[in-house]
Structures are given as C-alpha cells and as structure tokens.
C-alpha cells in the first residue's frame, strides 16, 4: 500500500473581485506516489507548490480536482481518521492561545489517545528549558522543535514535515535529521519538503522535484547523482574570443551548452568531452589564460530543473 497517493491533483486559487477575477494555478495535474516505509524528499523553489501539496494532503485545503489518499484512506472523506495516524509539522503554524509548550504536547497526546510521556518528547527534540513558557514567546527555532515533538506524538505511521529545518541552528538541524532516521527505522514513512538540496540529500531515499506547480522529476538520490556525474562545466578565460570558436565547440559531440560572457567561455558538456573542449578552443588560436572545470552538483541540477514559479 502506498503511504501517499496523489492522482491528477490540480489546485486553483480563485479570487473573485468586482473588477474581474484572478486565479492562480498552484498545482497542475500532479501525480505522486510515496511508498510505505521510505523517506521521501519533496523539493522545489519558493512558490513551486510544495506547501499547497502538503495542505491538500492534510485537508487544510481541498483540491480543485483530483484524488488524494493517505495511508489508504481518502483524505476528502476521512481526514480525521487519516490524521490519527499522521504526524504533522505544518507550515505557517502558530501557538494556540497562551498555551505553554508542554500544554501543546499534552494536548496532542490526549487528542491522539496516545500514552507518550511529554517529558520524553520534549527532551528528544531538545526544548527542555522553555517548555513551561507560552509558545507565543518562543523563537522560531524553539517553536520548530516543539512542533516536531507534537508531530511525533503517538508513533505515527506517516510523518509529514513542511520545511522542517526552517529556523533551526546546525544542532537542531542535526537533531531533526537524526529523528527522521530514527522514525524511519521504527517503520514510519517520512515525507518532507525543502528548498535546500543538502537537507534532502542527507536523509532521503527518493526525491521529487516540483516547479511551477508541476512534477519535474521523481527519482532516487543515487540516480540523480548518476545523471549529474555525466555533466561537467568547463570555464575558459581567453584574451579574446575569436570568430567561430563558439560554433565549433558547440559542434562537438557531448556539448550541451556554450555561452560567452565577455572573454569568458562557459561550456556545459559530458565529463568525457572536457579535454576535447579545451583542445578545440586552444586550436582556434585564442590565447587561453585560465581553465577551470567542475562537476555539476546536485544544487546545480536542482537549479537546472527548476526555473520559475506558479503561473
């Protein structure tokens, strides 16, 4: 059974006004399956539709069309039952009134009918000191730790974490990653969104990249890395760019892109073509003053996949 299954999910936000209406399509015909037991990273730039997807998973928002099932249940009709088995760290959360951190955790434990020890959860996320104060006074990072504790209540089968490391210090981010792994070892599926590739890279089994409301790719981290290993960037500093050199470089097999920026030529090409690129430029008669090559990082891959926001 899939932990999360989205089929043809479209979300349009409509705003009706006196002088014409506006609408934004945040998600367009999204299909996504998260398998039971995996750590799934949901990656995309700001405005790509990550939080909208999560809002739809949790029934904070209803999709304009399409179907959503979580842990085998239809979210549209059984959202309360779904949330009994899902731990949530939502985006844009806020304190409930003047309740203290401990009261938030206790409320979550009671609402889930769980028998967790609030002390243990608070200790696990590292917010022991401030637990007796109202959450309204918390710093962003401390509130984030608290919300993680709330999400962990009742050993959920699925953890949905929206940008979980926002506002966390490096220690907090490490704790977050450790807890994600621990929960996964216990058997929980973890779905989390991020716009930071490193976060995802460090813990995820599979990754989906969304951009402009559409799914760009779904793959394992290793497969993504393999695809990036094939590409490299060669940057050549020339005294002057001779006529025709760009064309002859472009004509080489394995070259995917050439661009000149003043006297700097940047070539994107297959790893094996790097030498041929340098030789071609050298043979054109240009004086080469400097050559640097680099392999494309996941970060650059992410950049290449994602260009823009929801239309």
């Amino acid at each position: 059974m899939a932990a999360i299954e989205l089929r043809g999910v479209t979300k349009r936000y409509e705003r009706v006004g006196f002088l014409g209406s506006r609408s934004v399509t945040a998600l367009h015909d999204l299909d996504l399956t998260v398998r039971s037991g995996e750590i799934f990273g949901f990656l995309g730039p700001n405005g790509a539709g990550k939080s909208t997807t999560i809002d739809i998973l949790l029934d904070y928002t209803a999709p304009t069309s399409g179907s959503v099932s979580v842990l085998g249940r239809d979210v549209a009709t059984e959202s309360t039952a779904v949330r009994e088995r899902v731990g949530v760290l939502p985006d844009g959360y806020g304190p409930i009134g003047e309740r203290t951190g401990r009261e938030h955790v206790e409320f979550a434990i009671e609402a889930n009918g769980a028998d967790d020890d609030p002390e243990e959860l608070i200790e696990r996320v590292g917010m022991c000191g401030p637990d007796a104060y109202p959450v309204a006074e918390y710093s962003k990072g401390m509130a984030q730790r608290l919300m993680l504790a709330v999400a962990l209540v009742g050993e959920p089968d699925l953890l949905v974490l929206d940008e979980p490391t926002t506002g966390l210090d490096p220690n907090g981010a490490r704790t977050m990653r450790r807890i994600v792994r621990e929960e996964n070892d216990r058997g929980a599926t973890v779905f989390f969104s991020s716009h930071i590739m490193e976060q995802v890279e460090a813990v995820c089994d599979r990754v989906a990249i969304v951009d402009g409301g559409e799914l760009v790719t779904v793959d394992t981290i290793d497969a993504l890395r393999d695809s990036t290993d094939e590409t490299a960037t060669v940057t050549l500093e020339l005294s002057a760019v001779p006529e025709g050199v760009l064309e002859s470089v472009r004509a080489l097999e394995g070259v995917s892109g050439v661009r000149a920026d003043g006297t700097t030529v940047v070539v994107a090409c297959a790893d094996a073509t790097k030498a041929a690129v340098v030789a071609t430029v050298y043979d054109s008669g240009a004086e080469v003053t400097d050559v640097t090559t680099s392999e494309t990082s996941l970060e650059e891959l992410f950049e290449r996949y994602t260009r823009g926001v929801a239309q």
Binding site: D59, T80, R83
Partner: peptide, 16 residues
C-alpha cells in the same frame, strides 16, 4: 486562530 496559525496545529491533530 486562523491568522495566527493555531488552526494549522489543531487541525493537524485528529480533531474534526
């Protein structure tokens, strides 16, 4: 509760 985000917390729990 809606503007502060408290509802996001409450409705993240099994509360209808």
């Amino acid at each position: 509760k809606r503007t502060t985000g408290a509802l996001n917390v409450v409705l993240g729990l099994p509360i209808s």
